[in-house]
Design a protein around this nucleic acid. Sequence first.
DNA 1: CTTGGAAAGTCAACAAGGCTGACGTAAATT
DNA 2: AATTTACGTCAGCCTTGTTGACTTTCCAAG
Lengths: 164, 164
Amino acid sequence: MAEAPGGENLLFLTDEQLRKGIEAMFFAYRGFTADPDRILEGMNYGRAHHRAIHFIHRSPGTTVSNLLSILGVTKQSLNRVLRTLIEDGLVRSEKGKVDARERHLHLTDKGQMLERELSDAQRARMRAAYRAAGPQAVAGFRQVLEAMMDPEMRRQYNRLKEGG
Amino acid sequence: MAEAPGGENLLFLTDEQLRKGIEAMFFAYRGFTADPDRILEGMNYGRAHHRAIHFIHRSPGTTVSNLLSILGVTKQSLNRVLRTLIEDGLVRSEKGKVDARERHLHLTDKGQMLERELSDAQRARMRAAYRAAGPQAVAGFRQVLEAMMDPEMRRQYNRLKEGG
DNA sequence: CTTGGAAAGTCAACAAGGCTGACGTAAATT
DNA sequence: AATTTACGTCAGCCTTGTTGACTTTCCAAG
């Protein structure tokens, strides 16, 4: 067993271990999105709609520009998704009272129902994985994921974590 | 503190905890793909090319149908990617000697170079995250990801893990 | 030896969801 | 009054996924 200069065992940092982690991310992300994808296919929505719905549910009354910075897409791309959600009566958009340029976004009852269906499915998988791995593994899982984020994304993530 | 019937503390399974995990996956996956994406943008390739290159590197001589089952896309979709990689001299495709219907895929030297560049970038981020979180967290990370995969994908993942 | 079917490849058409660029409008700020 | 900000929209492009139909090659079973 190779020991690092400081006496710390760094076997978990070999290229082989890192590659396994990379492939685990790839395969796991597929599972992560599989259930919502299945629900959305057939209705006219996709993963982009799911993301918008998720974060509007998460931060009711959020503005378009706020959503833009969380999702990291262009306004044209988000707008296409948002427009269909508003037209279909899943999302309500209302002018800001303090700043009337802003649009504040909320889920309608219908939107809440779809959100519930999607997040129930996604949480069920997550719950099964968490239960199988145990609390200590879950803590490690979250630590590694957080360390993997871009600083700007970590900021967004932590704002959501606290704010909610 | 709520205790489960069995006396086990299940606080880590609350909806709130699960939601945090879901968002962590979302933001972390962005970081996970960010560096290779940056390298590929401007050359005529995308994430799909990266995936093909990764798994060909991983299992040299693999067949097209094998790659199909790992990547989980249609042959038409994979073929488009593979064709450009072959045309550009990054991948070599050769008829099978035992079964001449099969095409065995290898990276050329040029392909190896790009693979190296991409995986160096991706490993660097993974290494930083692993180092920041520590070996115990990494073990938990892998456990949860593995539990999150679809059974079929877990099979693929484990085949790669052992076979390599 | 013939034939059925698997493996691989190709063409065409389409959709989702990214992107850029340009433009318009209303409201806030300077 | 001029500029900036927030948002919406039109047009067009790219990547990467999809289905369907079709061909070629070739193994293997009858």
